[in-house]
Design a protein around this nucleic acid. Structure first.
Lengths: 100, 100
DNA sequence: CAAATAGTTGGCTATATTGCCAAATAGCAA
DNA sequence: TTGCTATTTGGCAATATAGCCAACTATTTG
């Protein structure tokens, strides 16, 4: 695989990697129904707020979510809702797997 | 997040994780154009055959690819071509990101 | 200004992933 | 049987990830 090809797949892999975590998938799913602040997400997830903040920064650095500070809170929203398409395929993979 | 919800997102994350590697994305892309044996993939990738074999077994364990031994070779094919949908979204995320 | 709330960042440990080499297995051919 | 090719598996070292706590920043409120 030449350098350019590798770079192309690496870039894509980075995005999938950002999604490939239960907490981050949950966050994306929640945000698909509208923006939420870090404290709301933290309450839903039940982890330390610093952990949730780090997950959000991973998603943000890859351009999947965007943040907006309003007062004391930082609200996050989905920037690229197409990531929701991942869910259906995951379900199909699981169904296909068990259906053998 | 309750146990059941966590399990649901964990199952999906496992599938995305299996895809979240440059080499494995390359493999999936190659297989989308038809089956290939391990040695063909190894030649294209340029890594040790044991490395390629391990990547393939990750994809296989998750039900993304399927193998079939014919003679000396083991041929792999895409079992759930919907994973190809991931590519378009990744491209869109990247475009959206740079377009700011 | 001080106190309280919301969030981010640094640091640390535990755990998981990656990729190579070496060894083992399987099928084909001499 | 012996050897050759294709592939898988075990083991190991290097690297990356996850999640907690503590410290720090920012904003609002008294």
């Amino acid at each position: 695989m030449d350098t350019k090809t590798l770079a192309r797949y690496t870039a894509r892999a980075r995005i999938l990697k950002a999604m490939a975590h239960p907490t981050r998938l949950f966050i994306v799913d929640e945000l698909s129904r509208g923006e939420k602040c870090v404290c709301e997400l933290t309450a839903l997830i039940g982890a330390d707020i610093s952990t949730v903040s780090k997950h959000l920064s991973i998603l943000k650095n890859l351009g999947i979510v965007q943040d907006e500070k309003r007062g004391l809170q930082v609200y996050y929203h989905l920037k690229t809702p197409c990531v929701m398409n991942f869910f259906d395929c995951c379900e199909l993979v699981m169904k296909t797997r068990t259906g053998e």
